[in-house]
Design a protein around this nucleic acid. Structure first.
Length: 259
DNA sequence: ATGGTCGGCAACCGA
Protein backbone atom coordinates (compact mmCIF):
# COMPACT_ATOMS: atom_id res chain seq x y z
CA UNK A 1 0.00 0.00 0.00
CA UNK A 2 1.48 3.28 -1.15
CA UNK A 3 0.30 6.54 0.38
CA UNK A 4 1.47 10.10 -0.24
CA UNK A 5 0.79 13.60 1.04
CA UNK A 6 1.19 16.89 -0.82
CA UNK A 7 0.33 20.47 0.05
CA UNK A 8 -0.64 21.58 -3.46
CA UNK A 9 -0.99 25.33 -2.78
CA UNK A 10 -3.97 25.40 -5.20
CA UNK A 11 -5.00 22.11 -6.77
CA UNK A 12 -6.01 23.85 -9.99
CA UNK A 13 -2.61 25.50 -10.40
CA UNK A 14 -0.93 22.16 -9.74
CA UNK A 15 -3.03 20.13 -12.20
CA UNK A 16 -0.11 18.88 -14.32
CA UNK A 17 2.28 18.27 -11.44
CA UNK A 18 -0.35 16.18 -9.64
CA UNK A 19 -1.55 14.17 -12.64
CA UNK A 20 2.01 13.48 -13.83
CA UNK A 21 2.97 12.36 -10.36
CA UNK A 22 -0.02 10.04 -10.03
CA UNK A 23 0.66 8.49 -13.43
CA UNK A 24 4.33 7.94 -12.56
CA UNK A 25 3.92 6.73 -8.98
CA UNK A 26 0.48 5.08 -8.95
CA UNK A 27 -0.20 5.63 -5.24
CA UNK A 28 -3.09 3.83 -3.61
CA UNK A 29 -3.91 6.99 -1.66
CA UNK A 30 -2.94 10.64 -2.18
CA UNK A 31 -3.80 13.20 0.51
CA UNK A 32 -3.86 16.84 -0.57
CA UNK A 33 -3.92 20.09 1.39
CA UNK A 34 -4.47 23.73 0.46
CA UNK A 35 -6.59 22.82 -2.52
CA UNK A 36 -7.99 26.38 -2.46
CA UNK A 37 -11.16 25.49 -4.32
CA UNK A 38 -14.84 25.41 -3.46
CA UNK A 39 -16.48 22.00 -3.70
CA UNK A 40 -18.59 23.01 -6.71
CA UNK A 41 -15.39 23.76 -8.66
CA UNK A 42 -13.29 20.77 -7.51
CA UNK A 43 -11.56 19.08 -10.48
CA UNK A 44 -13.12 15.65 -9.95
CA UNK A 45 -12.63 14.53 -13.56
CA UNK A 46 -8.85 14.86 -13.33
CA UNK A 47 -8.90 12.08 -10.75
CA UNK A 48 -11.60 9.83 -12.19
CA UNK A 49 -9.81 9.89 -15.56
CA UNK A 50 -6.78 8.42 -13.79
CA UNK A 51 -8.85 5.71 -12.10
CA UNK A 52 -9.19 7.40 -8.71
CA UNK A 53 -12.11 8.21 -6.50
CA UNK A 54 -11.84 11.47 -4.61
CA UNK A 55 -13.38 13.04 -1.52
CA UNK A 56 -12.86 16.69 -0.64
CA UNK A 57 -13.84 19.60 1.50
CA UNK A 58 -13.02 23.09 0.30
CA UNK A 59 -13.77 26.75 0.68
CA UNK A 60 -13.13 29.91 -1.27
CA UNK A 61 -9.47 30.98 -1.64
CA UNK A 62 -8.02 29.30 1.46
CA UNK A 63 -7.42 25.87 2.98
CA UNK A 64 -9.20 22.85 1.49
CA UNK A 65 -8.33 19.15 1.75
CA UNK A 66 -8.91 16.07 -0.40
CA UNK A 67 -8.13 12.36 -0.53
CA UNK A 68 -7.80 10.52 -3.83
CA UNK A 69 -7.84 6.74 -3.70
CA UNK A 70 -7.79 3.77 -6.08
CA UNK A 71 -9.92 1.90 -3.51
CA UNK A 72 -13.41 2.69 -2.20
CA UNK A 73 -14.02 5.00 0.74
CA UNK A 74 -16.24 4.29 3.70
CA UNK A 75 -17.05 6.25 6.87
CA UNK A 76 -16.18 9.55 5.19
CA UNK A 77 -15.91 12.53 7.54
CA UNK A 78 -15.45 16.03 6.13
CA UNK A 79 -15.01 18.19 9.22
CA UNK A 80 -13.26 17.88 12.55
CA UNK A 81 -16.06 19.40 14.60
CA UNK A 82 -19.69 19.54 13.54
CA UNK A 83 -19.79 23.19 14.55
CA UNK A 84 -16.76 24.16 12.49
CA UNK A 85 -18.35 24.53 9.08
CA UNK A 86 -16.06 27.25 7.77
CA UNK A 87 -12.65 25.65 8.09
CA UNK A 88 -11.86 23.08 5.41
CA UNK A 89 -8.90 21.47 7.13
CA UNK A 90 -9.92 17.89 7.86
CA UNK A 91 -11.09 14.84 5.96
CA UNK A 92 -11.03 11.22 7.06
CA UNK A 93 -12.21 7.87 5.76
CA UNK A 94 -11.68 4.15 5.98
CA UNK A 95 -9.92 2.81 2.90
CA UNK A 96 -9.53 -0.98 2.77
CA UNK A 97 -9.55 -1.33 6.56
CA UNK A 98 -7.02 1.47 7.06
CA UNK A 99 -8.24 4.56 8.93
CA UNK A 100 -6.91 7.57 7.02
CA UNK A 101 -6.91 11.10 8.42
CA UNK A 102 -5.80 14.04 6.28
CA UNK A 103 -5.14 17.33 8.09
CA UNK A 104 -4.16 20.85 7.17
CA UNK A 105 -3.11 22.38 10.48
CA UNK A 106 -3.46 26.18 10.83
CA UNK A 107 -0.20 27.99 10.08
CA UNK A 108 -0.39 30.06 13.28
CA UNK A 109 1.11 33.40 12.11
CA UNK A 110 3.16 34.22 15.24
CA UNK A 111 3.37 33.16 18.90
CA UNK A 112 1.24 35.26 21.20
CA UNK A 113 -1.44 35.94 18.59
CA UNK A 114 -5.00 34.65 18.33
CA UNK A 115 -4.00 32.69 15.23
CA UNK A 116 -1.27 30.91 17.19
CA UNK A 117 -3.67 30.02 20.00
CA UNK A 118 -6.14 28.78 17.38
CA UNK A 119 -3.45 26.51 15.93
CA UNK A 120 -2.82 24.93 19.34
CA UNK A 121 -6.56 24.59 20.00
CA UNK A 122 -7.09 23.01 16.61
CA UNK A 123 -4.40 20.43 17.32
CA UNK A 124 -5.95 19.81 20.73
CA UNK A 125 -9.34 19.23 19.10
CA UNK A 126 -7.76 16.89 16.55
CA UNK A 127 -6.13 14.84 19.30
CA UNK A 128 -9.40 14.68 21.27
CA UNK A 129 -11.22 13.52 18.14
CA UNK A 130 -8.63 10.81 17.53
CA UNK A 131 -8.71 9.66 21.13
CA UNK A 132 -12.51 9.35 21.00
CA UNK A 133 -12.65 7.47 17.72
CA UNK A 134 -9.52 5.32 17.48
CA UNK A 135 -6.96 3.49 19.55
CA UNK A 136 -3.32 2.82 18.83
CA UNK A 137 -3.87 -0.91 18.23
CA UNK A 138 -5.95 -0.01 15.17
CA UNK A 139 -4.37 0.63 11.75
CA UNK A 140 -4.47 4.44 11.56
CA UNK A 141 -2.59 6.82 9.30
CA UNK A 142 -2.65 10.55 10.00
CA UNK A 143 -1.00 12.64 7.35
CA UNK A 144 -0.83 16.19 6.09
CA UNK A 145 0.75 19.59 6.61
CA UNK A 146 1.21 20.11 10.36
CA UNK A 147 3.09 23.41 10.07
CA UNK A 148 5.47 22.33 12.85
CA UNK A 149 9.11 21.24 12.66
CA UNK A 150 9.88 18.94 15.57
CA UNK A 151 13.65 19.04 15.98
CA UNK A 152 16.60 21.26 15.02
CA UNK A 153 17.47 18.86 12.19
CA UNK A 154 14.00 19.48 10.72
CA UNK A 155 14.68 23.04 9.51
CA UNK A 156 17.52 24.99 7.94
CA UNK A 157 17.99 27.64 10.65
CA UNK A 158 17.02 26.21 14.04
CA UNK A 159 18.91 28.89 15.99
CA UNK A 160 17.33 31.78 14.11
CA UNK A 161 13.86 30.24 14.16
CA UNK A 162 13.87 29.13 17.81
CA UNK A 163 10.57 30.16 19.39
CA UNK A 164 9.13 31.36 16.08
CA UNK A 165 5.95 30.00 14.53
CA UNK A 166 6.52 26.50 13.18
CA UNK A 167 9.39 25.85 15.60
CA UNK A 168 7.92 26.76 18.96
CA UNK A 169 7.96 24.48 22.04
CA UNK A 170 4.18 24.76 22.52
CA UNK A 171 3.59 23.47 18.99
CA UNK A 172 6.18 20.73 19.37
CA UNK A 173 4.64 19.65 22.67
CA UNK A 174 1.28 19.27 20.92
CA UNK A 175 2.75 17.12 18.13
CA UNK A 176 4.55 15.00 20.71
CA UNK A 177 1.21 14.34 22.41
CA UNK A 178 0.06 12.65 19.20
CA UNK A 179 3.23 10.58 19.32
CA UNK A 180 2.62 9.75 22.99
CA UNK A 181 -0.87 8.59 21.95
CA UNK A 182 0.73 6.11 19.56
CA UNK A 183 1.49 7.86 16.28
CA UNK A 184 4.92 7.17 14.82
CA UNK A 185 6.66 9.74 12.61
CA UNK A 186 7.51 7.13 10.02
CA UNK A 187 9.87 9.27 7.92
CA UNK A 188 12.13 9.62 10.95
CA UNK A 189 12.09 5.84 11.52
CA UNK A 190 13.96 5.26 8.26
CA UNK A 191 15.83 8.57 8.02
CA UNK A 192 17.91 9.71 10.98
CA UNK A 193 19.73 12.40 9.02
CA UNK A 194 18.82 16.08 9.03
CA UNK A 195 18.30 18.40 6.08
CA UNK A 196 15.38 16.35 4.74
CA UNK A 197 12.66 18.90 4.08
CA UNK A 198 9.17 18.96 2.56
CA UNK A 199 8.68 22.74 2.38
CA UNK A 200 10.78 25.63 1.05
CA UNK A 201 9.40 29.15 1.47
CA UNK A 202 8.96 30.97 -1.86
CA UNK A 203 10.11 34.17 -0.18
CA UNK A 204 13.66 32.95 0.39
CA UNK A 205 15.61 33.60 -2.84
CA UNK A 206 16.73 30.25 -4.28
CA UNK A 207 15.56 28.62 -1.06
CA UNK A 208 15.00 25.27 -2.74
CA UNK A 209 18.34 25.24 -4.54
CA UNK A 210 20.07 26.15 -1.30
CA UNK A 211 17.94 23.61 0.60
CA UNK A 212 16.70 26.21 3.06
CA UNK A 213 13.57 24.32 4.05
CA UNK A 214 11.48 22.77 6.76
CA UNK A 215 10.11 19.27 7.44
CA UNK A 216 6.54 20.15 8.38
CA UNK A 217 4.59 17.52 6.41
CA UNK A 218 4.22 14.15 8.08
CA UNK A 219 2.90 10.65 7.69
CA UNK A 220 2.09 9.32 11.15
CA UNK A 221 1.09 5.68 11.57
CA UNK A 222 0.12 3.51 14.50
CA UNK A 223 2.36 0.56 15.35
CA UNK A 224 0.37 -2.14 13.49
CA UNK A 225 1.04 -0.23 10.26
CA UNK A 226 4.45 1.18 11.13
CA UNK A 227 5.66 -2.40 11.68
CA UNK A 228 4.82 -3.06 8.03
CA UNK A 229 6.60 0.01 6.65
CA UNK A 230 8.87 -0.95 3.77
CA UNK A 231 9.96 2.42 2.36
CA UNK A 232 9.42 6.12 3.04
CA UNK A 233 10.86 9.06 1.12
CA UNK A 234 10.52 12.68 0.11
CA UNK A 235 10.12 13.12 -3.63
CA UNK A 236 11.77 16.46 -4.40
CA UNK A 237 11.38 16.20 -8.17
CA UNK A 238 8.01 18.01 -8.30
CA UNK A 239 9.50 20.94 -6.32
CA UNK A 240 12.20 21.35 -9.00
CA UNK A 241 9.68 21.73 -11.83
CA UNK A 242 8.17 24.85 -13.35
CA UNK A 243 5.53 26.52 -11.17
CA UNK A 244 5.98 24.19 -8.20
CA UNK A 245 4.09 24.25 -4.95
CA UNK A 246 6.16 25.48 -2.01
CA UNK A 247 5.82 21.92 -0.61
CA UNK A 248 6.64 18.57 -2.17
CA UNK A 249 5.46 14.94 -1.91
CA UNK A 250 6.11 12.72 1.09
CA UNK A 251 5.54 9.05 0.27
CA UNK A 252 5.37 5.77 2.19
CA UNK A 253 4.91 2.12 1.27
CA UNK A 254 3.55 -0.57 3.60
CA UNK A 255 3.50 -4.31 3.09
CA UNK A 256 -0.15 -4.95 3.95
CA UNK A 257 -1.88 -7.85 2.31
CA UNK A 258 -5.22 -6.50 1.25
CA UNK A 259 -3.69 -4.03 -1.21
C1' DA B 1 22.96 44.17 -10.41
C1' DT B 2 19.00 50.18 -8.10
C1' DG B 3 16.04 43.71 -8.29
C1' DG B 4 14.09 39.79 -4.71
C1' DT B 5 7.36 34.76 -3.98
C1' DC B 6 2.98 32.69 -4.86
C1' DG B 7 -2.28 31.95 -5.40
C1' DG B 8 -6.69 33.67 -5.13
C1' DC B 9 -9.10 37.16 -6.56
C1' DA B 10 -9.88 41.59 -7.48
C1' DA B 11 -7.53 44.96 -2.68
C1' DC B 12 -5.00 42.80 -0.17
C1' DC B 13 -4.74 38.26 2.84
C1' DG B 14 -2.50 34.07 3.97
C1' DA B 15 1.50 31.23 3.73
Amino acid sequence: MKIATFNANSIRSRDKIISDWIRAEQPDILCLQETKVQDKDFPVKGFTDLGYKVIFRGQKAYNGVAIASRHPFSDVRLNLKDTEEGQARFVSAIIDDVNVINAYVPQGFAPGTDKFRYKLEWLQDLLAHIDRNYNNAMPVIMTGDFNVALEPIDLYDPEGMKGEVGFHPDEQDMIRRFMDWGFIDIFRVHHKEGGQYTFWDYRIPNGFKRNMGWRIDYIFATKPLADKLTRVWIDKEPRAREKPSDHTFLVAEFDVGQF
